[in-house]
Design a protein around this nucleic acid. Structure first.
Length: 645
RNA sequence: GCUGGAAUAACUCAGUUGGUAGAGUACCUCACUCGUAAUGAGGAAGUCGAGGGUUCGAGUCCCUUUUCCAGCUCCA
């Protein structure tokens, strides 16, 4: 007998050799029905495992990530089985569970289409109905390779060959289908309930663009049809917040095909929001010891040769001219650093001058690959709240902290703080081509940064190979409505470029030293920030950010003059105001203003004109009744000043 | 850049096996002068993204290209 301690502290005894699934059954039929996998002494495992000694067992249900992953991983195997049934010549690559579903990569002989996807889904449902038991077995590496060669699965053979020689490999078999897999999996295909194949996409074998592009089939699975439907409904709702759709509908931006990809046109409302954000950021920075520079948008190739951009970032730049043909070759700037450094180099610096904080509202140009552009989130020309801070080693941590605090303040003010996560972006020592500097320099820069991050207790995850070519970064990451993650804000420590440009200061002992440089942004690039704000608020921006803060809706033409008088008074106080001068019914004007998501509608008619008042309707709370113009003005000014959300 | 999908009026979309280009909204005109989410009538509006091909005839079929969307790769 072995003793099993359950999560709730209960102890049970079972004969040695009892599987976890049988244990669950003997505890209760209900548990057996809902448990999907288990943790034995903290290790994720299959229900078909039979513990050999006393242990702690935690049965995992749909409520745990481990349970969901086992469930969806099994769904991905069922998909692979369906593919092998309908397309016997297709080869299998990999098929994991992911955050909200699963995918499987296949190498099809001919591309599959939407009908094929429907057929595959139908076949999956058949496999689930067949309720095929799923068995686990292990093979030596050698036998595993032999089996996959016999099955003619070259990708699987390659995967196995990369595993350690003495590895014992686990396989899962369900009827006529066998796959290499670490598991865990459900006990039979019938445990799956609601599945849906969503779409296909290309994906490089092993994520390397030099490799063949495979077909990735995405799907999701839930224990109940109602939950699946709810999830799909949520996806549809999220799409309605998509900044790329909403931003165009709200007339914030547009694109024109003969201007080109990644070059959006900011319309008056979008440009106004950008201006508000920019003023907010610049004022805040200036109040915190930052000074402004204004540097050129382009430079001769000479500059980029010193900085290393020419060798490490040329593909990302717009270069004008050819080195062989033209006397001077210019390139638009992809980053501000080498330009702003010239301001530092303008004269000899003393240790007393540091820290020096240079801010610039900087427009940058990056020649992104054509498939990368996405609305305002990835563009080829963008404007960023860029800054470089030169300091002494003893000031580094304090300055880094203040940069981070500023970023957090900005995020909190915008209401995005709860949506971000931190990434400590490090270099990839195996890809030294991509970076300047020696391994020793990288170790030093990264350990300096790590010390600061740990000291500040920043909860980060590490991103290997995500560093800039000149140094490590703390990236503040955010997800868009589709769940795709992008960097919003970045704070970087750079020693290497300072050295390349010969930036120095004279220390108290008379010696010359290179300053530490912090590259940082306050709210990242304005285009991307705007995009995320659109999605965050579904276009209903906080009043301080709204391009139009109040719209005056006269009941009829008779009150137009009064409407203009009110508009003048509010506009003179700095409120962004519009009048709906059209000869339409009030209900119609309200509907339109509501759809434009204007924070306040001010209805004026006979009564209001008599009382020097406005009837206020808020987009959130509806009709709020009449109010003296002065009272409305002071209320909205307070709201704007506090940047209330 | 790669894989897949898409492009028809300002916007959202319909358009059957190839046979005269359609709706709703918006816009313009007129009437109505209106009290908290759509007043009515009329009008104008499209080289069917661009270029080439097949055909008596192409929005529809084929090729090239541009842009947009999802994903991959890459990045703020």
């Amino acid at each position: 007998m072995i003793k099993v301690t359950l999560k709730d502290g209960d102890c049970k005894e079972f004969p040695k050799g009892t599987s976890l699934y049988d244990m669950a059954k003997s505890i209760s039929e209900g548990l057996a029905r809902v448990c999907l996998a288990a943790e034995v002494d903290g290790e994720l495992t299959d229900l078909r495992t039979s513990p050999q000694q006393d242990c702690a067992v935690n049965f995992l249900t749909w409520d745990s990530e481990g349970g969901r992953f086992a469930y969806r991983h099994t769904a991905s195997h069922v998909l692979a089985q369906a593919v092998k049934r309908l397309f016997p010549t297709a080869n299998l690559a990999i098929g994991p569970a992911i955050e909200n579903g699963f995918y499987y990569d296949f190498d099809f002989e001919t591309p599959i289409n939407a009908t094929d996807l429907d057929n595959l889904e139908a076949e999956m449902k058949k496999i689930i109905k067949e309720d095929i038991p799923i068995e686990r077995f292990t093979l030596s590496r050698e036998d595993a390779i032999r089996m996959m060669e016999e099955l003619d699965e070259p990708y699987k053979v390659e995967l196995i060959q990369d595993l350690p020689k003495d590895a014992e490999l686990s396989f899962y078999r369900q009827g006529d289908f066998t796959d290499l897999c670490a598991g865990p999996h459900l006990v039979s295909t019938g445990k799956l309930k609601a599945i849906k194949l969503q779409y296909t996409a290309g994906a490089y074998w092993r994520g390397d663009e030099k490799n063949k592009m495979l077909t990735r089939v995405y799907g999701t699975a839930f224990p109940k049809k109602s939950e699946l439907d709810e999830y799909l409904e949520q996806l549809e709702e999220a799409k309605k917040r998509d900044h790329n759709k909403l931003g165009r509908e709200l007339e914030l931006f547009t694109t024109v095909d003969y201007i080109g990809q990644g070059l959006p046109i900011l319309l008056p409302k979008g440009a106004k929001m950008m201006q508000i954000l920019q003023r907010f950021v610049e004022d805040h920075e200036d109040a915190h010891g930052w000074v402004r520079t204004k540097t050129p948008y382009m430079a001769k190739s000479d500059l980029y040769k010193i900085s290393g951009h020419w060798d490490h970032y040329k593909d990302g730049m717009f270069v004008m001219g050819e080195e062989e043909k033209d006397k001077e070759v210019f390139a638009l700037r992809p980053m501000t650093c080498p330009f702003q450094y010239q301001a530092y180099l303008n004269k000899m610096r003393s240790y007393r001058d540091l820290p020096l904080r240079y801010g610039e509202t900087s427009t940058l140009f990056r020649n992104e690959a054509s498939g990368e552009m996405h609305g305002l989130i990835r563009v080829r020309q963008f404007t960023i709240s860029e800054g470089h801070l030169m300091c002494r080693p003893d000031q580094l941590e304090e300055e880094f902290k203040s940069c981070l605090e500023m970023a957090i303040y900005m995020l909190k003010t915008l209401g995005l703080y709860e949506d971000v996560s931190y990434r400590f972006s490090q270099w990839d020592p195996n890809d030294s081509e991509k970076y300047i500097g020696t391994p020793e320099q990288w170790d030093e820069a990264q350990s300096t940064m790590q010390k600061i991050l740990d000291h500040l207790e920043i909860p980060y995850k590490v991103g290997i190979g995500e560093a800039a070519f000149y140094g490590p970064k703390l990236d503040i990451q955010i997800k868009n409505v589709f769940g795709k993650e992008d960097t919003l804000i970045t704070i970087q420590i750079d020693q290497m470029l300072a050295e390349k440009f010969g930036m120095e200061y004279v220390d108290s002992d008379g010696s010359r030293k290179n300053p530490y440089i912090i590259h940082r942004t306050s709210i990242g690039c304005y285009e991307r920030t705007l995009a995320l704000l659109i999605e965050k608020y579904a276009g209903a921006f906080p009043t301080w950010l709204a391009p139009v803060q109040a719209k005056i809706l006269p009941i009829s033409e008779h009150y137009m003059e009064y409407a203009r008088k009110v508009a003048d008074q509010l506009a003179n106080a700095g409120i962004r105001i519009e009048i709906d001068e059209r000869n339409e019914k009030i209900g119609y004007k309200i509907r339109e203003a509501q759809l434009e998501k204007v924070p306040y509608m001010l209805i004026v008619g006979e009564k209001e004109q008599a009382d020097n008042a406005v009837s206020v309707r808020s987009r959130k709370e509806g009709d709020k009744g009449a109010m003296a113009v002065d009272d409305f003005l002071s209320a909205i000014l307070t709201e704007v000043a506090t940047k209330a959300r």
